[in-house]
Amino acid sequence: MVLAVTLCLIWIIVNLFILLPKRLSREENLFLFLTCSITIMLSLLLPAKRMYFGDPGFNYSIEGTLAFLFNRNIIFPVLTLISINLVQDKGLWKKLITFSASFCVFILFCKLEEKHTIVSSINTVTLFIYFICFYTLMLVLLKGFQLLSQKQQSSDQ
């Protein structure tokens, strides 16, 4: 059941990413996908320790593990891509709405499917701090990546 739901979610989110207008170039989107995937995988090392290394009190199935892997490597990174593409829109209100909506989706997703997203129970305040740090890090890294291109263009000229 959980795997079927996750696969449907993947289909919806990937199609949403395809349909929504993209403010970032292909290179920037790929860069963002790779950096946020690596960050998410490393961030989950501690909360998902029970699943990774086997905990006698923690029941997991192949189906559950696959759902977790799909969440970790497809749903979270693609949601980040969608959010960061939308936050590039001009206008403070648009940015604020996008940020708030992304935060709500992130918290809801982590709380509703806790066992297959963050594995351990984490309180909302910690999740909120993590989300702010993660989002800021992605925006800073993206800005740095964009500056690299601008510097290259100015040095070429």
Partner: peptide
């Protein structure tokens, strides 16, 4: 390659 490509 340019810097962006190298980083990627």
């Amino acid at each position: 390659f340019n810097r962006q490509q190298t980083i990627t």
